[in-house]
């Protein structure tokens, strides 16, 4: 599991953040030695650091500058200061990315994934996912089963990908829509229904019928 370090002085926030990261397949490590944060980060063996700017003893920007002198460890700055100037400063000091509190959690996850993909050459969103009954090829936007394959549209791919990630769980329509909106497909309720129907029909073409089941009043489930 990839270890992510959290440097945040608010106790509750760092704990909730750590729970959230653990739920999403990362190992979260909370670093609290604020008077000795630089060596603490360097010795932590983390693959990525979430660094708050307002910290006791040394502020985040100072820590970032000092770390950049010796290490290239990916760092995402977290701050409640919401203006372009602070963002620019952080980027100039060598931060890999920047999020403002309160953060959009899906976007934070996406940023973490993007940085890890770049730095560790590990693709957390694997390009080819083996789903036992079929293979989902994300980079080609295709579903393969044996010799047969179907092409998916952008939205269909996103829907299927989300359902695959949550396989066996009921996914509420609202959650599915929020996921699509976060990845910039601003679709409405009817379009979602249409997309699901099309996706089902396409899956049926390669003899994958009844894969997506509708749970009335609750959402969808991928069996």
């Amino acid at each position: 599991m990839i270890k992510i370090g959290i440097v945040e002085d608010d106790k509750k926030l760092r704990e909730e953040l750590s729970i959230f990261l653990s739920k999403n397949g990362y190992e979260a490590m909370i670093l609290t030695e604020f008077d000795n944060m630089i060596s603490s980060i360097l010795n932590s063996n983390c693959k990525l650091i979430l660094l708050d700017i307002n910290l006791p003893y040394f502020d985040g920007e100072y820590i970032l500058k000092e770390i950049r002198k010796v290490s290239d460890i990916p760092i995402i700055m977290m701050t409640s200061r919401d203006n372009e100037i602070d963002e620019l400063l952080s980027m100039n000091y060598g931060a890999d990315d920047y999020v403002t509190k309160p953060f959009n959690i899906q976007i934070l996850l996406a940023k973490i994934a993007a940085i890890l993909k770049r730095t560790l050459k590990i693709d957390t969103n694997q390009n080819i996912i083996d789903c036992q009954d079929f293979i989902l090829n994300i980079s080609k936007s295709k579903v393969q089963k044996g010799n047969e394959e179907i092409e998916l549209t952008k939205n269909e791919l996103k829907i299927l990908h989300f359902l695959v990630q949550k396989r066996g769980e009921i996914v509420a329509r609202e959650d599915l829509m929020k996921y699509l909106w976060d990845s910039e497909s601003f679709i409405d309720d009817n379009t979602l229904t249409v997309n699901i129907t099309r996706l089902r029909n396409k899956l049926e073409e390669i003899h994958l019928s009844n894969m997506i089941e509708t749970k009335r009043g609750q959402g969808y489930i991928l069996k």
Binding site: L13, E16, L17, I19, N54, S80, K101, P102, F103
Partner: peptide, 18 residues
């Protein structure tokens, strides 16, 4: 004050998410 209040909001949002 605005920067301060954003921290409890961020925490609340994380709790809601969890």
């Amino acid at each position: 004050w605005i920067h301060e209040i954003k921290i409890p909001i961020a925490t609340s949002k994380m709790i809601i998410e969890n």
